[in-house]
Computed example of a mutant assay.
Amino acid sequence: MKIGVFDSGIGGEIVANDLKKHFPDATITAINDRAHLPYGTKTEEQVINLTDTAIQPLIAAASDVIVIACNTATTIALSFLRKKYPDQLFVGIEPMIKTASELTRTNVVAVCATPATLKSKRYNELKKSFAADITVLEPDCSDWASMIEANSVDMSRISSVIADSLAKKADVIVLGCTHYHWIYEQITKLSQERAHIIEPTPSIARQITALTAKRPR
């Protein structure tokens, strides 16, 4: 099986490494578009065009599945890609609003995501479907991806966001950008076990297995 992984930056590396554990016999190719970072501050049209252009090597390689390991690209471009390439299997990554709504006991969750993700139609559909009766905090994480990409994370900024979310009684913190997975352990430590920290990486392998099982051989 050929699995392609695309992310705007280094977040896809974590996804690719995780998939290697689940699919040891698969050929996994990870690509990024670091030349056009950050995606999270771009317009929807720009994100769609950049994502479509960037995944062409994975399309050309006849990937069985292409993982869009970027929340911004998933929420904005995935529906476009599925229409343009109807014979290609795609797996996207979306902010885990449904899971957060099921886990919360305080009815307050925090979604750490890029500005583009938070403004996207898909994200707001998820909120409407699964978070209508809870408070969703959307702290300013607009510079997180750039800091992580540059390996110059200012933990005081991260700490301030987490502390403020906890002070507002958030008991679930959603990491809505794969870049943020690189600081998962730090965020978990900052939460002091007062909040669940969730991200979608573990579910990707299950989605790939389910999709490929349905495809005729």
Score class of each variant (00 low, 15 high):
residue 58 L to Y: 05
residue 24 P to I: 02
residue 35 A to V: 11
residue 150 A to G: 05
residue 172 V to D: 03
residue 202 P to F: 11
residue 106 T to C: 06
residue 62 A to Y: 15
residue 119 K to A: 15
residue 63 S to E: 10
residue 126 L to S: 00
residue 60 A to I: 10
residue 95 P to W: 02
residue 212 T to L: 12
residue 43 T to D: 11
residue 1 M to E: 07
residue 177 C to Q: 02
residue 146 S to N: 13
residue 79 S to I: 14
residue 106 T to H: 13
residue 93 I to C: 14
residue 197 I to N: 02
residue 215 R to W: 13
residue 91 V to T: 10
residue 42 K to E: 06
residue 208 I to Y: 02
residue 134 I to A: 04
residue 32 N to V: 06
residue 162 I to P: 02
residue 155 M to R: 14
residue 52 D to P: 00
residue 49 N to S: 12
residue 213 A to D: 06
residue 90 F to R: 06
residue 217 R to I: 11
residue 186 Q to M: 09
residue 105 R to K: 15
residue 73 A to T: 01
residue 133 D to K: 14
residue 47 V to K: 09
residue 209 T to N: 08
residue 4 G to D: 07
residue 31 I to K: 02
residue 77 A to N: 01
residue 37 L to W: 04
residue 61 A to P: 05
residue 116 A to L: 04
residue 162 I to A: 03
residue 181 H to R: 09
residue 130 F to D: 00
residue 36 H to Q: 13
residue 69 A to L: 06
residue 118 L to C: 06
residue 153 V to A: 12
residue 159 S to F: 02
residue 61 A to L: 15
residue 57 P to Q: 11
residue 160 S to I: 03
residue 26 A to T: 05
residue 47 V to P: 10
residue 42 K to Y: 10
residue 217 R to C: 06
residue 154 D to T: 09
residue 188 T to D: 12
residue 32 N to K: 06
residue 159 S to G: 09
residue 198 I to Q: 13
residue 209 T to D: 08
residue 23 F to R: 08
residue 89 L to V: 14
residue 22 H to D: 12
residue 94 E to N: 07
residue 186 Q to W: 09
residue 129 S to F: 01
residue 58 L to V: 13
residue 54 A to K: 01
